[in-house]
């Protein structure tokens, strides 16, 4: 795992990471490097600090503390020596590096007319390791996809951060665009609007992750604009978008639904109740776009899905009502 981002770490840090036990690296999800503060590795619900000898320890005082030079060097390597080429990313506070790994930045923000222009003096980075888990969305796809048409209802995948939403919809896109010869489910044209280059991890416009044979990707494109661009020019049957919730998303989604495509989207929420109460999402729920909400949880490393139908739809095994949605299993 570290091998993939190894070339983006300064030599000293790379050497330490090379000594970290492989078992720990395999479950690692986040590597945090903060200037003059302990280096942290977390994953599988646990965290630890990295000792200069590579051991993951609980005591932060024993941990390796990267110097200012190392951090500056790290930023140079992460940006491919070209900070100027990442202005938009710096404004949003993260950059996506080759391989689809997202690097969040902490530091001092520079404002221009009251809005964040960029982050300067980066004091810490959080490298989120992207992972491809082929087959993780299979239960979801088997349940929701119509075996005859291969299409899904308009669905929104919700979960708390760091649960694997992006991993799941990446695999879902692959499944939809591959279909299944066994059940004779046809493959569908899929369009991914990958605003943060996380779903498909495009490098020069070509996806590095397996997103299926009939998938087109609009890399780095804003969702609201991308939705209509996609529909007009690439004629997808299913559109996949990540992390909706922006003010213009509701309108764009409503527009897209009526343009005859199925929507697969994700959003952050602490719980399904919180999702229904989130002002940004409420605007979207009010439009009634999504026929199906799916709550994603992780139990012992595997994805667990809970399904919520819209009230006007018939469903079996109703467990409870939440807002205008019913819990089913």
């Amino acid at each position: 795992m570290i091998g993939e981002i190894g070339h983006m770490l300064p030599e000293s840090i790379r050497a330490i990471m090379g000594r970290v036990p492989v078992a720990q690296l395999n479950v690692a999800e986040e590597l945090r490097i903060r200037e003059n503060r302990p280096m942290e590795l977390s994953g599988a619900g646990q965290f630890g600090f990295i000792h200069p000898n590579g051991q993951v320890v609980d005591n932060p005082t024993l941990a390796y503390k990267p110097t200012r030079e190392e951090c500056m060097r790290l930023i140079e390597l992460l940006t491919n020596h070209s900070l100027y080429a990442l202005e938009e990313e710096l404004r949003r506070g993260f950059i996506t590096v080759r391989g689809g790994h997202r690097v969040g930045l902490a530091g001092r923000t520079v404002l221009e007319q009251g809005r964040v222009k960029q982050i300067r003096d980066v004091g810490g980075v959080n490298i989120r390791l992207a992972r491809e888990v082929i087959g993780c969305a299979e239960p979801l796809w088997k349940r929701l996809a119509d075996p005859l048409t291969g299409l899904l209802p308009h669905m929104l995948l919700l979960s708390s951060p760091q649960t694997g939403k992006t991993t799941v919809i990446r695999d879902l896109a692959r499944l939809i665009s591959s279909g299944s010869p066994r059940t004779r489910t046809p493959a569908k044209k899929v369009g991914i609007i990958d605003e943060r280059s996380e779903i498909a991890a495009c490098y020069r416009g070509v996806p590095l992750f397996d997103v299926g044979p009939r998938t087109d990707v609009l890399d780095g494109c804003p969702k609201a604009e991308g939705l209509m661009m996609m529909i007009r020019s690439l004629s997808p049957e299913v559109v996949v978008v990540d992390e909706i919730g922006g003010p213009e998303d509701a309108q764009a989604l409503e527009e897209a639904v009526r343009a005859g495509v199925r929507i697969v989207a994700t959003a952050h929420a602490g719980s399904i109740e919180e999702a229904l109460a989130r002002p940004a999402l409420q605007r979207i729920f009010r439009t009634g776009v999504f026929e199906q909400l799916v709550w994603l949880e992780r139990a012992h490393g595997t994805a667990v899905f809970r399904y919520f139908h819209r009230e006007d739809q018939s469903s079996v095994g109703i467990q409870a009502h939440i807002g205008r949605y019913r819990v089913c299993n």
Binding site: E76, T79, H81, S82, L83, Y84, E87, L90, Q118
Partner: peptide, 10 residues
């Protein structure tokens, strides 16, 4: 200064 600042600065 090569590559370490924004476009304007470069």
């Amino acid at each position: 200064t090569l590559g370490v600042s924004d476009r304007e600065d470069q």
